[in-house]
Amino acid sequence: MSKIAVTTSINGDPAEFLCDAGETLLDALRVTMGLTGAKEGCGSGDCGACTVMMDGEMVCSCLVLAPEAEGKSIATIEGVAEGSVLHPVQRKFLEHGALQCGFCTPGFIVAAKALIEKNPDPSESEIRYWLAGNLCRCTGYDKIVRAVADAAAEMRQDQNSQRTAA
């Protein structure tokens, strides 16, 4: 069987892998690249556990074919922290106890970070609708929504203080 060679960028680093035509990006990441941070909860776009960024937009990696990654830039949960410095969304998830089992958490964090980058001051309702594609069965979403709002607030403050400093 001849495989398709894909050249892409994952978390800012050049990456190459071989895949079948019908293979999903999620499988390529998890199985071929060993990046198991993105999870498969459904394989059909319903749960968001597999959320990654592709050219700056969040997508369900279970609904992207691996060959489509050619020439794209992919960002996964593994690239959210900068070295050992957690992203504010990650830190706020911990501070608010916004995870129980943690299986949904990578998807929520990628999605929440994307939200705050688009909308630095989201309302509760905007957070809830933005995250409606991410299922969490453990938390009832309360602490997740609070963590995201708090992360956004902190990031706004950092921006302001940076601006004042500049």
Binding site: E78, L86, Q90, F93, P106
Partner: peptide, 21 residues
């Protein structure tokens, strides 16, 4: 109190190994 859980960082960074991983 509300301290951060010991396994927290692994779970917010995608490092934790679950059943399918």
């Amino acid at each position: 109190t509300r301290p951060v859980r010991p396994d927290g960082v692994d779970k917010v960074t995608g490092k934790a190994i679950y059943g399918p991983d």
